[in-house]
């Protein structure tokens, strides 16, 4: 399923004195199979954008029977696979099964008495009448995929787990329905460095095998550089750049002027550039090290 979005604009509290334009003519395409990154400050519109993807925020034209566009309004296109999100006829419920969404601090949405029940929640909602055996198997698979041992945790209360474990249970509760696209809003936020690393490793395991496409919202440029095929930079409701990390992080001046960080490797590359050495890498640590070592071999 590809995500195709053109001319998407969204205004919060439209018509009130506190109206805020969260999205301003956003056009963006995310292809099936990508590990896509979304970068931007708090309030840049990135959360609003991702909430459109599974219809949590719906376009006005999908809500009204006869939608009359305002004067000068460009009608947006928003398609997720076969689903046309601008249309009223779209089955938004089944869309949500295809597009899994993990919110910030997802462990705060756990509610059931046991880990098993919590993970099964989405499954029971989307696949009404699913058998007990099937549920059990799917829950077990999802927990295993998230690096947890079902035998150990399934019967535990989710509230007795550690912070990192809770987060993985919450992710299991979303992937249990095997969504084709998995969207995560800052999946590693608030975890300690080791917890962060585990979550990112988990997403890599899921990508391709479990969910075809992964979209992450992140502030951590190292995370984006290491993991993403492409990334979009949001600023004040607009997409200002959308490039693979290899090209994106060459535009350090623009990123810095937007008040954004650059990955560590990009910082080292900049410092090397000032010393007359150009390293053309994709800004992952491994590629950088390989290129530096190759350069030395060449020079000898």
């Amino acid at each position: 399923m590809n995500i195709v979005c053109e001319h998407l604009t969204y205004v919060y509290d439209k018509g009130s004195p506190f109206a805020v334009k969260a999205l301003d003519d956003v056009s963006l395409t995310i292809a099936e199979g990508e590990f896509f990154g979304i970068i931007g400050h708090t309030g840049s519109g990135k959360s609003t954008f991702v909430q459109h993807l599974n219809g949590l925020i719906r376009l006005p034209s999908s809500k009204k029977k006869r939608y009359k566009p305002e004067k000068g309004e460009i009608l947006p296109t928003l398609k997720v696979g076969e689903y046309d999100l601008t249309s009223r006829k779209t089955d938004f419920y089944s869309l949500r099964k295809k597009v899994g969404m993990v919110f910030q601090y997802p462990e705060y949405q756990l509610f059931a008495e046991t880990v098993k029940d919590d993970v099964a929640f989405g499954l029971k909602n989307f696949s009404k009448g699913i058998s007990k055996e099937e549920t059990e198997r799917a829950v077990g698979d999802a927990l295993t995929a998230c690096g947890l041992d079902p035998k150990e945790v399934a019967e535990m209360s989710p509230f007795d787990l550690s912070g990192g474990q809770k987060r993985r249970v919450a992710i299991a509760g979303v992937i249990v329905t095997r969504p084709e696209i998995l969207v995560l809003d800052e999946p590693a936020a608030g975890l300690d460095p080791l917890g962060k690393r585990e979550v990112m490793a988990l997403l890599h395991r899921l990508h391709g095998s479990w969910c075809k496409t992964i979209v992450i919202v992140s502030h951590d440029m190292d995370e984006i550089a290491e993991n993403c095929t492409r990334a979009a930079v949001f600023s004040e409701g607009k997409v200002v750049m959308c490039l693979p990390p290899r090209q994106l992080f060459k535009r350090t001046d623009e990123l810095l002027s937007l008040g954004l960080d650059i990955p560590l490797v990009a910082k080292i590359c900049l410092a090397l550039q000032r010393r007359g050495i150009e390293i053309d890498c994709d800004f992952t640590a491994d590629d950088f090290v390989a290129k530096v070592l190759a350069l030395r071999r060449d020079r000898r």
């Binding site: 949590l56 899994g100 969404m101 919110f103 949405q109 979303v174």
Partner: peptide
């Protein structure tokens, strides 16, 4: 609102 959205994303009705 956030929790509601999260559960809606998991198919809650």
């Amino acid at each position: 609102e956030r929790i509601k959205n999260a559960q809606k994303a998991r198919g809650a009705d």
